[in-house]
Simulated assay, not measured.
Amino acid sequence: MISLPMYDVWPEDTQSLTREIQHRLRLQGFADNETRRVRPGDLLAHWQSGRLLLSQACGYPLVTRLRSVRTVGCFHYTAAGCHGPQYRSYFVARLADRHKTPEDFSGQRLVCNAPDSQSGYNVWVSRLTAEKPLTGFFSAVSFSGGHRHSLQAVRRQSADITAIDCVSLALLKRHFPQESEGLVIVGESPLTPGLPLITAGNTSDQQLVLLRTTLQAIVSDPSCRPLCDRLLIQGFSAIERQAYPAVPGAI
């Protein structure tokens, strides 16, 4: 199974890249049933499947709940805030609060995309809980189910601040510019390893090499450049699991 569920802001582009990966993996000798494209509902179950050939996960569940998978690597993104295979989160509030820092939002309302998100939740744990839990720093902590929904909550004044990774924010600004109207970045997190591309723990060393070779070939092929540009992808690096414990607060 292969999927790219994490930056699926514009599904047509995501599916085009998934089809390109599928096609090239079949040329490398992978069977049709191994390269079946899926749109997973339960991401954790999908990532833990022994039939997983390639997917994109989040660094926080990688080090906390996905201990059996193998890391393939990371895409490099052109979004502001990225550096090579690393990315960061932006702390976003309403324009009226543009002069504040994240620490100035004590006693106000935080909205996060999910409690297992590095970019939307764990960045707050890493930044603030040296002093007190998030529920002690903020008057309320809610979960929206997605970065786009978190931005909407801040815009509609049902929350006061959120954190969103820089790639998601750039893609949303490109395709849905109205989602960030009236919002402003009031801070940023340190760089961390980007969203890991993963494969099942039973994937062989030879298959892992083929996966990495295929992804490198796609980002280097001029014929794929227009598609990669639409997804803000400009490169690929093979990255081992050992890079991820350095993510602040992840383990």
Rank of each mutant, 00 (worst) to 15 (best):
Q178R: 14
G81Y: 08
R88E: 07
T101L: 13
T129C: 14
H149E: 07
K132E: 12
Y87D: 11
L208G: 05
L134W: 05
Q207H: 08
E181W: 06
Q207S: 10
L128V: 08
S126E: 08
S106W: 05
I198R: 01
G201H: 07
L128C: 07
R156M: 15
A140P: 06
T129G: 04
Y90T: 01
C112W: 01
Q152W: 09
S126N: 14
H99C: 08
D160Q: 13
K173R: 15
Q206H: 12
S180W: 14
Y90V: 02
P196H: 03
V184M: 10
T162S: 02
F105S: 03
P115K: 12
A153E: 13
H149R: 08
R127P: 06
A93N: 05
D104R: 11
L172Y: 13
Q207G: 05
T101C: 06
P196D: 02
Y90C: 03
G81S: 06
L195K: 12
I185T: 14
Q108I: 02
S180N: 08
R174L: 14
A163H: 00
T214W: 01
T101W: 08
Y90S: 02
I164G: 03
A114H: 12
L169F: 11
E181L: 10
R94N: 10
I185E: 11
L172M: 15
H83N: 13
T192M: 13
P190C: 10
H83V: 15
N122W: 03
C166S: 07
R148S: 10
P196Y: 04
A153S: 14
T101A: 12
D97K: 05
V184W: 04
G84E: 01
I198Y: 02
H147Y: 03
G107A: 09
V154W: 00
H147T: 09
G201V: 04
A93H: 03
S89G: 01
S180A: 14
L128I: 06
L208C: 10
G120D: 04
E131Q: 13
H83F: 11
G120N: 05
R155M: 09
T214D: 06
L171C: 11
E131P: 03
C112G: 01
S126D: 10
V92E: 01
C112P: 01
T203C: 05
Q216P: 06
V141R: 04
L169R: 07
Q207T: 03
R109V: 09
D116Y: 15
V167A: 00
Q86C: 13
S168P: 03
R109D: 07
H99D: 15
V125Q: 13
A140N: 11
S142T: 15
P177F: 12
H175P: 10
T101F: 07
I164A: 02
F137W: 03
Q206C: 07
H99Y: 14
A96C: 13
V167E: 00
A200V: 05
A153D: 11
E188A: 14
F91L: 12
V111Y: 03
V92H: 00
V125L: 14
R156W: 13
D165P: 03
P102C: 08
T203Y: 00
